[in-house]
Structures are given as structure tokens and as C-alpha cells.
Design a protein around this nucleic acid. Structure first.
Length: 295
DNA sequence: AGTCGCTCCTGCGTGC
DNA sequence: TGCACGCAGGAGCGAC
């Protein structure tokens, strides 16, 4: 399931192949995928625009799009020369099962293909999403990203940024009585952590998922912050995990050589102390932990 | 305002 | 063999 490391891996893959590519057209196969504008307007809105670069914010992918140079067209010339540089954004959230694949247009369509965008030389960016939770937006040049995508505007700091400081984390956690596992999944606390890395980071910092945020000690908060950073960084470094069926833009699986410490290992021995790992339901999701190592 | 449970959806594994 | 069921989980939403 795409969390920050998988999304970052997709971003890097896209930036190797799509910059400078002009969108020639497309095909929308599932209207529900388009959150903005109206599904019927989506393909037309993107057609003719050029992909500049891909950015990431939390689990969101943001493609910067550029209109054709004013000199390139005789149409609406007067208007265009007055307009500010018209950068718009194509924003994609993979949710649970979304995949962006850079393929040849002759590639057979996967069953759950939702959106196709066509590029020169028979190339295609294809959005495949089994469970249809994935969404995409087009944000026109004169609109703010946060207005069109409110959740994007409410995201907490990036885990690798200075804003994700010990002071920030301590302040936020001390004001909350939620279980720490629940808080880690809250994208307004820190952007990009999902269920897998939340469990892994809690194991690495030896904290029980059920621990109330306001009862964490400062050393625990320090350890947790570092564990979040470490586990995400390590996974990015190896191109996303193989904990899931994640695929990069070339359709290849991640090559994470190691294994999860706790995620998906209920009943198996803790790799540190040998105790059988436990699993419980928290905030509607499975939480895996070692009853001995995590207190 | 903080917190929680429900819901969206499809495929897969399990048990009867 | 076939079927029902639980589970996977990101995040929007309504409820308390």
C-alpha cells in the first residue's frame, strides 16, 4: 500500500521519464476517479499541457503543468500575453491500490485501468487502481491547491523537514489523549505515514501502539521521531517495500531486502526477543507489536 | 474541537 | 466445489 516511501519512489520514476512530455489526449474509464473538475472536463483540461516536474507532498503526487508558449499559438494571443505564467497542477492520490505506469500504448489494458493519458511516440501514463479509492484533481492556474484539495492544505509537516521537530511533535502529542498509533495515522500531525510504517516506527522506538500521546516521555518522543524518519528513509532508499504489491512506474516491484519487524507478523517470533508478536485493532486498523519490547 | 466509527471498493484467503 | 465472510487500509464524513 503506497505510503510516503512508495509515493516518493513513484515520483522519482516519473521524473525520469515524463518531464517535457506533452499531453496529447486521454481516456477516462472511471468517472469516480476524477475529484475535480467535473469528470467530463478533465481530459480536455489536461490536453495540450506539458509535464514539467513531479513533486510530492505527504502521499500526494503533484505534476506541474505548463501551457504552450504564447508564441506557439496564434489563438487568443492577446489574452495569453497578458496572463501570468500559467502553471497548473495535476494532483494524484494513489490511496490503497493506485498505480501510475509509464507504458507503450500497445500494452494490453489491465482490468482495472481507470485513466489513460497519451504522449508522443506512443507513450502513455496509465492509472490502474483495483479498488477505485484513488483520486485525481486538476487545479487551474488561477486557483489555490488548498482550495481545490482541502486535505492537502491541512497536511502536517514532511517527516524530513525541520518543521517536524522534537518541539513540534512534543507540543502536538502533549495536547492529545489519543493512542499514539492513531495519531501517527493522522496526516495533519505528520504527512506520509501509513499503517505499515506506523507499526514499524513504534516497534523501533519501543512504544506500545495504545500508549496515550500525552503520556509519552520526552525521550520516547525523541526516539519515535527518529524512528519515523529512519524507517521512511530506509524504505525510500530501496525503492519502496515489498510488504505489499506496490509497483513502480515501470511496473517493477520494490526490492526491499529485509523484512518488517512487526507488520503482518502476528504470532511470529519478535526478531529482537523471540516473543510471539501480537495484533490488535486500533482506530479500525490492525496494529502489530511485540508485547515484550514495546511498553 | 477532539475523537471515533462507518463507509467507499475489489480481491484474496479461510472455513464450513 | 461453492459460498459467506473477514480482512486489507487512506481518508472523508457524520456523530457524539
Amino acid at each position: 500500500m503506497p505510503e510516503l516511501p512508495e509515493v516518493e519512489t513513484v515520483r522519482r520514476g516519473l521524473n525520469r521519464v515524463t518531464p517535457g512530455a506533452k499531453i496529447l489526449g486521454g481516456d477516462l474509464l472511471l468517472d469516480r476517479t476524477i475529484a475535480h473538475p467535473a469528470p467530463g472536463e478533465f481530459i480536455a483540461a489536461l490536453t495540450g499541457l506539458t509535464l514539467v516536474t513531479w513533486q510530492r507532498r505527504g502521499k500526494y503526487l503533484l505534476a506541474e503543468l505548463q501551457s504552450p508558449a504564447t508564441a506557439a499559438s496564434g489563438l487568443g494571443k492577446a489574452q495569453l500575453t497578458q496572463a501570468p505564467p500559467s502553471t497548473s497542477y495535476w494532483v494524484v492520490h494513489l490511496r490503497m491500490t493506485g498505480q501510475l505506469l509509464w507504458v507503450d500504448q500497445a500494452e494490453p489494458l489491465a482490468k482495472h485501468t481507470r485513466v489513460r493519458l497519451f504522449f508522443p511516440e506512443n507513450r502513455e501514463l496509465r492509472f490502474v487502481d483495483t479498488r477505485t479509492f484513488g483520486q485525481m484533481w486538476w487545479v487551474p492556474p488561477d486557483r489555490n491547491l488548498a482550495d481545490i484539495i482541502p486535505t492537502l492544505g491541512k497536511l502536517g509537516p514532511e517527516p524530513f523537514s525541520e518543521a517536524f521537530s522534537e518541539d513540534y511533535l512534543a507540543d502536538r502529542l502533549q495536547a492529545s489523549r489519543r493512542p499514539i498509533k492513531t495519531a501517527l495515522l493522522d496526516q495533519t500531525l505528520v504527512a506520509g505515514v501509513g499503517n505499515i510504517y506506523a507499526d514499524e516506527a513504534l516497534f523501533l522506538s519501543r512504544i506500545r501502539p495504545t500508549t496515550r500521546c500525552d503520556r509519552l516521555s520526552l525521550p520516547q518522543i525523541t526516539a519515535l521521531r527518529q524512528a519515523v524518519i529512519d524507517v521512511l528513509e530506509k524504505s525510500i532508499g530501496v525503492g519502496g517495500t515489498t510488504f505489499s504489491d506496490f509497483r513502480d512506474v515501470q511496473g517493477l516491484n520494490g526490492n526491499y531486502g529485509g523484512q518488517a519487524w512487526v507488520y503482518g507478523r502476528e504470532g511470529e517470533p519478535c526478531l529482537v526477543c523471540g516473543t510471539a508478536l501480537d495484533r490488535m485493532r486500533l482506530a479500525g486498523r490492525s496494529s502489530h507489536f511485540c508485547p515484550t519490547c514495546q511498553t
